[in-house]
Nucleic acid binder design. Structure first.
Lengths: 184, 184
DNA sequence: GTCTATACGACGATAGAC
DNA sequence: GTCTATCGTCGTATAGAC
């Protein structure tokens, strides 16, 4: 379902299409997800949350610095979006926009997903010398920027917005770290 | 339709609901929009494009500087999102995510909308001393950031992401202008 | 131009056999 | 646990009266 949400949205993805795409047992959906589509949607959001959190953790482990990790993660995302011919994006954004006003459960799942990307990002920034509040605010902005850049990239069918975002994120992080260092 | 898209998404908004919400003549939809829902969707995106372009122009006229205009526009957006109890957002984002991979017409309409927000923003930045390419890239990032911040704000039910974005946008603009001035 | 009525399909969800 | 069959609802779109 995670894959279909990215191309067709939540409302536009029928359970029918999901079971076909997954080549899954048809009748078992309501056994594993007694709440039906909403439960499945929550699970999809949680899966996306875990996948992107893993990408962040991987980038952080390889890069060392927060700026390097951010660039690596965004470039990986740009490759993903471009190689899918701009058909893939962030499923959490879609669900937030479509269902945030209608299903409290789905909205909460999306909020949790964003938090679970913001928190480790802020952690990297703290490790590089920023205060907790500075780091959290900047991490929120970074996640917002990435989400927005994915959307604009998909609309314009160009990875330029994502690359521009990567540059700005690196610049922002390094600028803040320099400030924090200078104030020591 | 513009209003319903923001709360229920494109696929989740039935033509039935549209005509009821608009208290419009039921049978006349297919007279004014022979292409049906897709044509109506394009019109809705174009309306959103014009509305937000007007908000940018208004902020630019009142503020004078690019940084001031950006802050004013983002704060206005934050008020809008908050006062709607986080039910309203950017309809262009939703349509991009839901239909970008399925309808070329709608995707193009969304791309045009983003362009028509990026271009005047870049114009303000050029007026403040940036080069065309610098300005265009930064304007793209600013629009991306705003789109993303709206989404994260809605998910977390807090205007903090939007306010943080406003701060960073102002900082970015002023930093770039200082650089451009210093290089003179 | 605008209305009512309706065709036709897809949707989410359930029942009951196995 | 998984399958098939099916219910009721709502979706988009059209036809034809006025």
């Amino acid at each position: 379902m995670l894959e279909l949400i990215q191309t067709s949205g939540y409302a536009g993805t029928g359970l029918n299409a999901v079971i076909e795409h997954a080549a899954a047992p048809k009748g078992s959906v309501y056994f594993h997800f007694p709440d039906g589509k909403e439960g499945l949607g929550v699970a999809a959001v949680e899966l996306a949350e875990a996948q992107f959190a893993a990408l962040i953790a991987e980038a952080a482990a390889q890069a060392g610095s927060a700026a390097g990790a951010a660039r690596a993660a965004i470039e990986a995302l740009a490759t993903l979006v471009g190689e899918s011919d701009f058909r893939l994006g962030c499923p959490v954004s879609v669900v937030t926009l479509e269902m945030g006003a209608e299903s409290e459960r789905l909205r909460e799942a999306c909020a949790t997903a964003f938090e679970s990307w913001i928190t480790p990002t802020a952690g990297l920034l703290v490790a590089d010398g920023l205060t907790e509040t500075e780091a959290r605010s900047l991490a929120t902005v970074i996640v917002s920027m990435i989400e927005g850049a994915v959307i604009v990239s998909r609309a314009t069918r160009s990875t330029q917005p994502l690359h521009a975002a990567a540059d700005v994120v690196v610049e922002l992080i390094e600028g803040r770290i320099a400030q924090a260092g200078g104030a020591r």
